[in-house]
Design a protein around this nucleic acid. Sequence first.
DNA 1: GAGCACTGC
Length: 678
Amino acid sequence: MAAAELGLDAGFIPALHKPSALLPIAKHRDALLYTVETHPVTIVVGQTGSGKSTQIPQFLEKAGWCADGKVIAITQPRRVAATTVAIRVAEEFGCELGKEVGFSIRFEDVTSEATRIKFLTDGLLIREALVDPLLSRYSVIMIDEAHERSISSDILLGLLKKIRRKRPELRIIISSATLQAEEFLRFFSESTEEAKSADTVKSDEKQDAPVGAIVSLEGRTYPIDILYTEKPAEDYLEKAISTVFDIHTSEPKGDILVFLTGRDEIEKAVEAVSERSAQLPAGSEAILPLPLYAGLPTEKQMYVFDEAPANFRKVIFSTNIAEASVTIDGIVYVVDCGYVKLRAYNPQTGIETLTATPVSKASAAQRAGRAGRTKAGKCFRLYTEEAYLALPDANPPEIQRSNLAPFILQLKALGIDNVLRFDFLTPPPAELMTRALELLYALGALDDYAKLTKPLGLRMAELAVEPMMAKTLLSAPSFGCLGEMLTIAAMTSLGGSIWVQGDAGKEEAESARRKFAADEGDHLTLLNVYQAFVTKGRKEARFCHDNLINFKAMTRAMSIRAQLRRWLERFGITEDDSSSVAQAGAGAGVNKAEQIRRCLTTGYFAHAARMQPDGSFRNVSGTTVLHAHPSSLMFNRKADWVIFHEIMESGEKTFIRDITKIEKNWLVEYAPAFYSTM
DNA sequence: GAGCACTGC
């Protein structure tokens, strides 16, 4: 029926999204379905804008892959992606979100009996495997953005390879944006030792049929001119700023996106640009510099999406967040400093570092691609072409530079006892494995044969907190402080976002914090903040504002706490109705705070340190100098022995965060094997 | 006496 017959011609409503028939992927529909039909594994290579995440699940559903009540799962490395893609697909599919099309992320399960296409985070799918090891409710599992090599998606690939042998009918789709397609295909084609023995049993499976195939989809992007510097930049920050002005004065209209490495640089750049833009000739277009980084309050992050006012050119100075997590329309020019801050983990010291590292070719390509989303663009790389050619193809995957303890625990709980022989796409270094196994053993999660202990180890695996905190929580009932420990676990898992680093002066922020300070340290301080919030903050709108507390973070702490409590209830561990520390200190249970500190020691004994006369700390072996992070109460207080939640090296110094005073003899009492020589 | 790229259960 023509639109005119319906009388719609008077006022057209612009389409929210491109009709799917216009997406390049539509041309590949039949080829794609045929490959999925005939191969257990399909590698889809498509750039951003190819529509793979939204279209492939719908093609599959229409082709009958959801018969018999089976479900198609699509995993995403980020929560936002899982929700936004689900919303879009539900719209295109013409259903209410949570019916045929739904999503599931931690704390939010928007699915139902009717759900056939389900978007979820990769970490959550691993958790589902704990309950349903063969992921038997899914007919097709698509791992989206697999090229990002998140630790969870890497582990999922290993699990799926294993599951595939027991479920030959399962279809696996790996979506990859870059040159890594062959590597994924090789991974699924190679048989492991374990698989070889399984294949001899299953001789009916055709040995010579290819396991997988690669399907390429073209993206819908515009050409981008790549420009390099003639000589290496001495100071890329300065070079970035001058490049912005060069673009502004000599290039046509269009917003600029500048990739830098961190908050410091970004704030400096924003300041420098606003100062220098005053010197622009009168009457010329002005520059509007905007910062973008994860630590920025959400409202301020939103400014980057607003259109610049008339006669302004928008310049966004961003961290890596704009490389994949956040997409800004209207960017025509990209300036790439060539560096990214990467997290690394030193298995010898157990210390995480965050260091600026040259980007990979894959990252550089992704950054440049941000310029060509709406029309032809330009990318200014602040390094020479020679330097570009010397860059690695990709950064080392996360699994090779992380603390593996939480993942080893999960694999063990999935029945994979020999984690050293688990089929990793890229095996982690042996020292990382050893370190993780040693920690899990010291915590009592593994026995002398490296088998998961029951119930302790199994329960630790099922709790969605780090192993050290899981152990602490499971010890809490015997110290009579489960209620408090649940709160502390929820609060520490927020990772520093409790205080709003508003425009208010530092002193003001300090004094706000001091109101909740507990002599024993940061953990009890966090407990005080939470308890004040649940008694006052939820009722009084001004509470958070007056105390510079992040309301959203506190709400999140409440749901994390509730989730942890429910998990423990499933183990038959219920919260005691113990009184708050404040009350305890004032009255009957004077030792409550001590019980909490003791309980923390049962999980965090490996994170112990002793204060030196100069106020710095040393680790137990005395080999490393540690500093209380400026956000810690212990930053300017006296202490002797302490335990801490987190350790991180940044710049020249190694900082510890969330610190609580303990007694030295508790270390030997709760971790005799670990501290036998003390 | 001074600061953390980005995810996630």
